[in-house]
Nucleic acid binder design. Sequence first.
DNA 1: CGCCGATGTTGCTTCTGTCAACATTCATTT
DNA 2: AAATGAATGTTGACAGAAGCAACATCGGCG
Lengths: 205, 205
Amino acid sequence: MPEERPYHHGNLKEALLDAAVELIAETGPRGFTLREAARRAGVSHNAPYRHFRDKDELLAAVATGGFGRLMHAMQRAAPRAQPIDRLRRAGLAYVDFALRWPQHFAAMFDAPWEAKAYPECAAAAERCFGTLVQLVRGAQAAGQMPPGDPQPLAYQAWSIVHGISKLANAGQLPWRSRAAVLRFCARTLTGAPKPVPDAAPRCRP
Amino acid sequence: MPEERPYHHGNLKEALLDAAVELIAETGPRGFTLREAARRAGVSHNAPYRHFRDKDELLAAVATGGFGRLMHAMQRAAPRAQPIDRLRRAGLAYVDFALRWPQHFAAMFDAPWEAKAYPECAAAAERCFGTLVQLVRGAQAAGQMPPGDPQPLAYQAWSIVHGISKLANAGQLPWRSRAAVLRFCARTLTGAPKPVPDAAPRCRP
DNA sequence: CGCCGATGTTGCTTCTGTCAACATTCATTT
DNA sequence: AAATGAATGTTGACAGAAGCAACATCGGCG
């Protein structure tokens, strides 16, 4: 196996993706630069064009990878807990992911008006959402969520964790530690203090 | 009052802000360019530096204005309805704002890791959140929300509408019309189908 | 009337994305 | 085994943008 990269480097595509992820983690999607990624991969400023049509395609590839990681993080969360708890843990995993790699997360969801042109990325996002729907379905089957179409419920759950993630990353939430934000998220997901509760009379045993 | 701008244009700062808002609405914060803003304002590419330290400061000013508009939109929402309904309407106004000016909304919340350096912008965001807290307080006073510290409740409400706004703008929600997204938001805020209900033994008379 | 600070302009330098032309290597075919 | 063509990388160019410096123009001050 050729460990030396005399001229053809071997797996530039992977190296570029890694460099891009690293760069984005450091300086954000905005500070990210094709040339700097090439520099870090040890190739000339034009080598990336042999593997990606343009800058946006590399960004899209990074986002695609992010959706994969996010999906696995959600799937790994408490795989043998009660279905409803699996869903909650998956939500916490979502927020945890967003807080650990805020820039990567931003690359996945910001500047999407053009990302729509990358079907692989859209498919990865779709799969990611699909696991959420599956989790909701599980909770429904266990009678822990109201029956019916799971999609609206999944979208609602997604909205909550996504909102917390985005606001936290934007520095708009008052908690500074990841643990504190996750506690807030857990409290919100448990629904103890319903965000905007129904005005109907509450049942208290 | 000098209506002519022979050499000194009179109110370049305002004109630049307007041009920037317009430009951002067209091409997004990413496509935004200081030089193009200057071009639209009819001045040379370096005139903006007399009014803003750099590109980011102009962006921050645009974001600051956005927070003001958003706040007013929330305050205008159903000013004489039931407190809990005022809160819901304010949430809908939030999402409506985000959907109507997605790029402006993005300028307010994306790339914030650096926006923190602009105290005016942070203050505007703070005021914006403050009106939300006030609305929650009103609902609490009317007995329509659980008593206690209104801040966590306000943050939860904010997270929901923010999540819906961001996902919708990212094209991740399935509804294509603004009205449909707003209906989804209204349903979510009414809380009829709780997103992730408590797993604790349910009280059923 | 002459000076000064504010505002606007022209002209650079550096960096980036992208195109075009050229170089190197590998695999395959003869 | 030598040659050839497709991948893959490299060098060099150009346009556009951010930002710095030096210069120009204007209004208000003595």
